[in-house]
Amino acid sequence: TRVETATETAWISLVTALHLVLGLSAVLGLLLLRWQFPAHYRRLRHALW
């Protein structure tokens, strides 16, 4: 049971790290898009909202 718990903890930390990385890359990508294509971003936002 001790090994299982350790594996579970490792998986949880791995998944958390993955989610953090994905979230950060998504935010960075959005910022980059907004910085590179302001007109396109505004049009996209206008279409979405």
Results as ranks from 00 to 15, higher is better:
T7G: 05
T9N: 07
T7N: 14
T9I: 09
G29I: 14
R2L: 14
T5N: 03
T5M: 03
G29C: 15
L20D: 00
V27S: 07
A39R: 12
H46L: 06
T9V: 12
L18W: 04
W49G: 09
R2V: 14
L24W: 12
L14G: 04
R2Q: 15
A6P: 01
L14H: 04
T5A: 04
T5W: 08
Y41W: 15
R42H: 07
S25E: 00
R34D: 00
A17H: 00
L22S: 08
A26Q: 00
F37G: 05
L28T: 02
G23L: 15
W35A: 15
L32A: 14
E8W: 05
W35D: 03
F37W: 02
T7F: 03
S25I: 06
L32S: 09
A10I: 07
R42Q: 14
R42L: 09
L28C: 05
E4F: 09
W11P: 01
G23M: 10
T7D: 01
V3T: 03
L31W: 13
L44D: 00
Y41A: 15
E4T: 12
W49E: 01
A6Y: 00
H46S: 10
Q36V: 13
T5V: 03
W11N: 10
L44V: 13
R34C: 05
I12M: 04
I12P: 02
R45N: 10
T9G: 11
S13G: 15
A10N: 01
A10T: 04
H40F: 13
L31S: 09
L32D: 00
T5E: 04
H46Y: 08
L48K: 00
L24P: 07
I12V: 07
V27E: 01
W35G: 08
R42P: 06
A26F: 13
L22F: 04
P38G: 10
V21R: 03
L30S: 06
E8A: 05
L32G: 03
F37C: 15
L44F: 11
A26N: 00
E8V: 06
Y41K: 06
A47V: 09
L18P: 10
L20K: 02
H19Q: 01
L22V: 14
R2G: 09
V15R: 02
T9Q: 11
L20E: 01
L30K: 04
R2D: 12
F37N: 11
L14T: 00
A26T: 12
S13V: 15
R43D: 04
S13N: 04
E8K: 00
Q36W: 09
H19D: 09
S25T: 12
V3C: 04
E4W: 14
L14E: 03
L44I: 11
W49A: 01
L14C: 05
T9H: 06
H19E: 08
L33N: 00
G23T: 09
L24N: 05
L20M: 10
S13Q: 10
L31C: 15
T1I: 13
V3S: 04
A26G: 09
Q36N: 13
R42F: 07
E4G: 08
Y41V: 15
W49S: 08
A17N: 05
A17F: 13
L18A: 06
L30Y: 09
R34S: 06
L18V: 10
F37H: 14
T7P: 15
S13C: 14
A39Y: 10
H19I: 15
A17K: 07
L32C: 06
V3G: 02
